[in-house]
Design a binder for these strands. Structure first.
Lengths: 155, 155
DNA sequence: ATTTATGCAAAAACTTTGCATCCAG
DNA sequence: CTGGATGCAAAGTTTTTGCATAAAT
């Protein structure tokens, strides 16, 4: 229902590239660009990444060239960004709720040894054996491939 | 490394069916069957289900024909069950960490309107377009299909 | 001036830890 | 007895809420 002809992520990238046009990026999505929100958005959207609420808090308050922010505001702002569709909340690792700045259709690889998360292109999934959805429609497909380091036998 | 010729779930079902042989089920998995653990396991494994820590606490303490249990013990016991492989921690909904009594290979459908979670058989996934895993090996595949109720137009 | 939105301190909810107690050998 | 395991109160984290303040009309 946002009527730009551009995807969210192109906007985000452009906004960051164009430095302080983070503001217009937020405005374009119906979000008032307060100092705190601009500070949070600047750190969030600097690249595609998966961050937890308190990592974001740290980032923002360490480099507080823009503004310092409370924990509550970080949580509230992240929730707002999710509601407005510029950020995605993902349950990749049960240990931590992460926010994913890539809102395009994609899947994840989680290295359970290192905690590293990588984005991958959507894979083909054969849903022909799926039981029919009565009165329901498919909304999204979350796929997480968990991998481990090959510590021992290379074979 | 557990050497019964039976799957975990058959054991669980049998254990519950055979009433107080929950104890032997726990013992078979190297878990000392204390009163608290038996109480928790009895409620957990009564059927395949997805429960959060405090739902389990409620269940156990409401019907405390066996024992009453503190919150901490529920958390510690659940973690123990996960470590011993009779329970699975799943990140299906970012809002809540759930424990899944079905430890067989399977996937999930989450109805985001109702919060209901259903198990489904593993679907075929085409991994041919996957980037190669250098020094890593695939450990598990988590697939969550999110569905919505068809509130409006059926077409 | 009134209304609506914002940001944060405090409260609530969730999870972990340290230690007193229990139990098996 | 003794050593290891157990269970929980209390501490530590994380998240939400309610309200004082700020912005917009």
């Amino acid at each position: 229902m946002h009527s730009t002809g551009r995807t969210t992520n192109e906007n985000a990238a452009r906004a960051v590239a164009g430095h302080s046009s983070i503001s217009s990026f937020l405005i374009n999505h119906g979000i008032k660009p307060t100092r705190q929100r601009v500070a949070i958005a600047t750190h969030l959207f600097e690249k595609d990444q998966h961050l937890s609420a308190d990592i974001i808090l740290d980032k923002v308050n360490k480099d507080s060239t823009i503004s310092t922010v409370s924990k509550a505001t970080v949580y509230n702002t992240l929730k707002l960004f999710v509601d407005e569709g510029i950020l995605r909340e993902v349950a990749i690792d049960p240990e931590r709720i992460l926010f994913d700045t890539n809102t395009k259709d994609h899947h994840h690889i989680l290295n359970v040894d290192t905690g590293e998360i990588r984005d991958i292109e959507p894979l083909q999934i054969d849903t022909s054996s799926l039981p029919e959805l009565l009165g329901e429609k498919l909304d999204s497909v979350d796929l997480i491939l968990k991998v481990r380091n090959q510590l021992s036998a290379p074979r």
